[in-house]
Write a protein that binds this DNA or RNA. Structure first.
Lengths: 336, 336
DNA sequence: GTGAAAGCGCTAACAA
DNA sequence: TTGTTAGCGCTTTCAC
C-alpha cells in the first residue's frame, strides 16, 4: 500500500482537489460543512501531506538549518532546543547538524541545506563561510550567524560579548585577591577563546601587579584540562598561578580532577578556578564551579526570530545583537 | 535571483535535460565529453539539485529519521553521531530529534518524518508507537527500534541486554564483599530502569545473605541523585546500604556529590558505587566511577545498516540484535 | 549515447 | 464557495 494523496481525499469527500488544498492551507475560506467532510475523509485515509510536493510548489521548505560547533557541549545543546522551540511556534522545524569544528562537515551541511531549500540557516561558523552564505542569500536562503559576528556586518548575528565575559571572570579573581592568573584554553583560532583571553588581559591591564599566563590547549575538552592540571600540579607551589580562568567548563572540570583530587592542590585556597558556560556539571562538580553564564536559550530564540523576519523580507538591514554574559560565583573562587 | 535548474544547465551545456539528469544519477552511461561539458555548466551556474523535486519523483527522501529519548544523555549523543556517520556512508542524511520522554514530542517527530517521506525511522520509543509504526511501514517507511525490543518482535531492534548489565553490576558488588545493596533509579516505567533492576535481583537471588533495596527516583538526572544521596546520608551508618547500583551515571554523580563531598560518607570504603553508561564524566568525577558500558556507536551503526536493508527489501524478516554490556571497574567500587 | 515527454502531489490563479 | 488547470524540477521510459 502506498500513501494517499489529495486526490484520494477529494474523491472520498466528493470535492475537488483544490478544495482539499484549501482546507489544508486556508480553511477559513471553505464552508464549515465542507471542512468537516474533508477532515473526516483525511482521517479515514490517515492522509499525511507530502511535504516534498508542497515544497516544490511553493519554492522552499518549512525547515530551518542549524549548524553548531559541537554536539557534546551543553551550551549548544540548549541553544538548539531553544531554536527548535522558537521555530515550532512559527510552524517550522529545525534540521540540526554539528560541524565538530571541521570545515568539511560544515560545507556538507550547507550543501544539504541548499539541496533541501531550507527557509534559512543559523550557523556558528568554523571556516570562512561568508562568501558561500552570500551566494545562498542571493538564491533566497538567508542566514544568521550565531555566537559569532561577521566582520563586515553583512549578515545578522546573535552573539555574546566574550571579551566582556573574560573581563568579568578575571575582574572577579582580582577582586578576591588573586594576582598570578593563568588563562587555559585553545586552539587560539577559535574566536570565543581569543576573545575571552583578550577580555582577561583587558581586566588585568589596570592592575600592574597582576600577571596573565596564557596556557594553550588543543581542544576544549575534559581531557585537555586534565593534561594542563597535571602539568601545573608538578610545578613548585610558588611557581603555580593562584587562579585559573578556563575557557570553558569542560576544561575547568578536567583541571579540578588533576589538581584537586589527584594533585592535592586546595581549591579555592591555593588556586581559585573560574570556568565558562555554566553547564549542568558546574554546580555538581567536586568543588562547585564559578562560571560565566551565557543566555543560550535567548540566543537560539532570537536568532530564529531574526532569521524568519529576513526570510519574509530579504531587504531587511542586517542586525547585530550582542548579549552580556553573567558571572555565577560558587565555591571554586571563594576569597582567600 | 533564483536557483538554477536542470533546464538552465541543459541549455548552457547544449544537451537535453534528460542527459543532465543522467550525468547526475548514472554518469557511466553518458559519454565522457558530455559529462565534462555538463559538469562545467553546473559549476558555472553553481547548480544545486532540488531535493524536493527529486524526492517527489522517486517517492521518498534520502534522509533517515531518528528519535532519541534525551538530547543531554551522552549515550544518545554518541549513538546519534554513529548513526549519522553510517548513514552518510550510504548517501543518506539523518534528521535527529529527541522526545525528552514526552509522547507528544515523539508523535510530532513521527508526523514530520512521514510528511518528509523519510526512507526509514530509528526510534527509541516512549509511548506505544508500534501501531503507528506499523501503519507507516505499510506505506513504505520501515522502522528499527533502538535500545528497546518490541514485545511481539514485529519490528527489528538493536539493543543492549539491560538485565545482563544489572546482573553484571550487582555480581561485581557481591564479589567485592558487599551485602546490603541499594538500587537507585526511576521512573520504573522506563524499560531500561526496570530491566536493570531485574538483573540486579537475579544476581542477588543466588546469595541469600544479599539484599536489594529499590529506591525510586522521578528522573535519571544529577539532581535526582543528589536528593537520594541526601536522604541516605541522613540515615544511621548501620541502616545505610554498603553499596549502591545507580541506573545511570548522572544519578551516580549526584549521589557522589551529596554522599561523599557533603555527607562525609567514604566511597568506596563505606559505600561502593556503580553507575551505568560510562559517560565521559564517569572517569572524571571526584571518585572515578565504576560503570556499565554500552556499545553506543555500534548500536547506531547497526541500526542504520538494518534499516537501510529493510528499506531496500520490505519483506525481510525482523531481526533482534542484542549486545552485551561490559563492566568498567574504577575506584568507586574497590574492594573493602 | 542522447532527446522527448509523462507525471510524481501539491498550491494558487482563475473561472464558474 | 468550489472546480479546473498549469506548472514547480526532477527522473525515467521509450524512441531514435
Amino acid at each position: 500500500m502506498v500513501s494517499s494523496s489529495v486526490k484520494d481525499v477529494a474523491a472520498l469527500a466528493r470535492v475537488s482537489i483544490g478544495t482539499v488544498s484549501n482546507v489544508l492551507n486556508r480553511p477559513e475560506i471553505v464552508s464549515p460543512e465542507t471542512v468537516e467532510r474533508v477532515t473526516l475523509a483525511m482521517e479515514k485515509l490517515s492522509y499525511v501531506r507530502n511535504e516534498a510536493a508542497r515544497q516544490l510548489r511553493v519554492g522552499h521548505s518549512s525547515a530551518l538549518g542549524l549548524i553548531t560547533l559541537s554536539g557534546s557541549n551543553p551550551f549548544f545543546t540548549e541553544l538548539t532546543t531553544a531554536a527548535e522551540d522558537g521555530a515550532a511556534l512559527a510552524g517550522y522545524s529545525v534540521i540540526a547538524g554539528n560541524s565538530n569544528d571541521k570545515k568539511e562537515r560544515e560545507a556538507g551541511y550547507l550543501n544539504l541545506f541548499e539541496e533541501l531549500r531550507v527557509r534559512g540557516v543559523l550557523i556558528s561558523p568554523v571556516g570562512n563561510v561568508v562568501p558561500r552564505l552570500r551566494r545562498m542569500r542571493e538564491r533566497g536562503i538567508p542566514a544568521v550567524l550565531v555566537d559569532r559576528v561577521s566582520k563586515d556586518m553583512s549578515f545578522s548575528s546573535v552573539s555574546v560579548d566574550d571579551v566582556a565575559g573574560g573581563a568579568l571572570a578575571v575582574s572577579h579573581l582580582i577582586e578576591t585577591g588573586r594576582r598570578r592568573i593563568a588563562f587555559v584554553g585553545g586552539p587560539a583560532e577559535i574566536r570565543q577563546v581569543s576573545d575571552r583571553l583578550r577580555g582577561a588581559r583587558q581586566a588585568a591591564a589596570a592592575h600592574p601587579e597582576v600577571t596573565i599566563e596564557a596556557i594553550s590547549t588543543e581542544a576544549l575538552t575534559v581531557q585537555a584540562g586534565r593534561d594542563v592540571g597535571q602539568e601545573l600540579a608538578q610545578r613548585s607551589p610558588q611557581s603555580r598561578p593562584d587562579a585559573i580562568f578556563a575557557a570553558n567548563d569542560l576544561l575547568a572540570i578536567g583541571l579540578l580532577q588533576t589538581l584537586f583530587i589527584q594533585g592535592d592542590v586546595a581549591i579555592p585556597e591555593e588556586i581559585a578556578l573560574v570556568g565558562y558556560d555554566d553547564i549542568q556539571f558546574a554546580s555538581a562538580s567536586v568543588v562547585p564551579l564559578t562560571s560565566v553564564r551565557q543566555p543560550s536559550r535567548l540566543i537560539g530564540e532570537t536568532a530564529v526570530k531574526i532569521l524568519l523576519e529576513e526570510a519574509d523580507d530579504p531587504d531587511l538591514e542586517p542586525r547585530q545583537i550582542l548579549y552580556q554574559p553573567e558571572l555565577v560565583v560558587r565555591a571554586s573562587s571563594a576569597p582567600h
